[in-house]
């Protein structure tokens, strides 16, 4: 579904990604693990067109999207819940969800139906529908960011560190929902520092270090890989 070839990204003199090759198939959850500054966010931002690649190609459903602008990429079916959540602070939860459907041509009724689905996935959001999103807790904002990304009815969902700064119990809930979304047919790319959590729910994974893919494979085997255990799973 998504194929990335030799992707390199620079910030001025800093090489954030060095010739990364990556692939995700329909129906998979693939995680991208790596520590601080490994380049996970850069990778996801490049896929969404927020950062321009220095070289390399990105194919989505066989078409080259390397030079396409962000707002067109969402329309093609790649939606992202970004690092730091980025909810629209002065908009209510409902307005944020409506923003998620901005790229679609859905009618208000269709959007409302999708919102009802989001409330099924994330009941906590239902209770907060008319609150300004800045007033939500971190966990609720994370749920909102994921729900907002889903409102675009994506084919591929990108999630950047959904566990960041959230209480462990809520993280468990969110990961359970991610897993269920995938069982419902959603293809998901999950970038996470918390490798154990990510590997547990993923089919396959890539390990990123200083902008380079140093390992890839079945999530289960990486979970038991000695190097990965030492570096990312605390022994």
């Amino acid at each position: 579904m998504l194929l990335v070839e030799n992707l390199s990204v620079n910030y001025g003199a800093i090489q954030a990604l060095k010739s990364v090759n990556f692939e995700i198939f329909q129906g998979e959850i693939v995680s991208l693990v790596g520590s601080n500054g490994a380049g996970k966010t850069t990778f996801l931002r490049t896929l969404s067109g927020l950062v321009k690649a220095k070289s390399g190609k990105i194919f989505f459903s066989k078409s080259n999207i390397s030079n396409i602008e962000s707002h067109e990429i969402v329309k093609l079916g790649i939606s992202q819940s970004p690092e730091g959540r980025m909810v629209f602070p002065d908009m209510t939860v409902k307005e944020n969800l409506f923003m998620g459907a901005f790229c679609t041509k859905n009618s208000s009724q269709e959007i409302q139906k999708d919102i009802d689905k989001m409330i099924d996935w994330f009941p906590r959001l239902g209770e907060r529908m008319n609150q300004k999103s800045i007033l939500l807790s971190g966990g609720e904002q994370q749920m909102l960011a994921i729900a907002r990304a889903l409102m675009a009815r994506p084919k591929l969902l990108l999630l950047d560190e959904p566990s960041l700064g959230i209480a462990p119990l809520v993280v468990q809930q969110i990961f359970k929902i991610i897993s269920e979304l995938n069982r419902g047919g959603m293809t998901i790319l999950l970038a996470e520092q918390n490798a154990r959590l990510a590997l547990k729910i993923s089919h396959r994974a890539y390990v990123l270090e200083l902008g380079t893919v140093i390992k890839k494979g079945e999530a289960q085997s990486l979970l038991h890989d000695d190097d990965v255990q030492r570096a990312y799973l605390g022994g």
């Binding site: 969404s48 067109g49 927020l50 602008e69 962000s70 707002h71 969402v74 329309k75 939606s79 992202q80 970004p82 980025m86 909810v87 629209f88 602070p89 002065d90 908009m91 409506f98 923003m99 998620g100 901005f102 790229c103 679609t104 907002r148 990304a149 675009a152």
Partner: peptide, 23 residues
């Protein structure tokens, strides 16, 4: 819709792009 796009962009440029607001 266009007006909402302006508000979204003013609140968070990157988030608005990710939602499909043409910058």
């Amino acid at each position: 819709k266009a007006g909402t796009g302006i508000r979204a962009l003013a609140m968070h440029a990157d988030a608005s792009k990710l939602c499909g607001v043409p910058f």
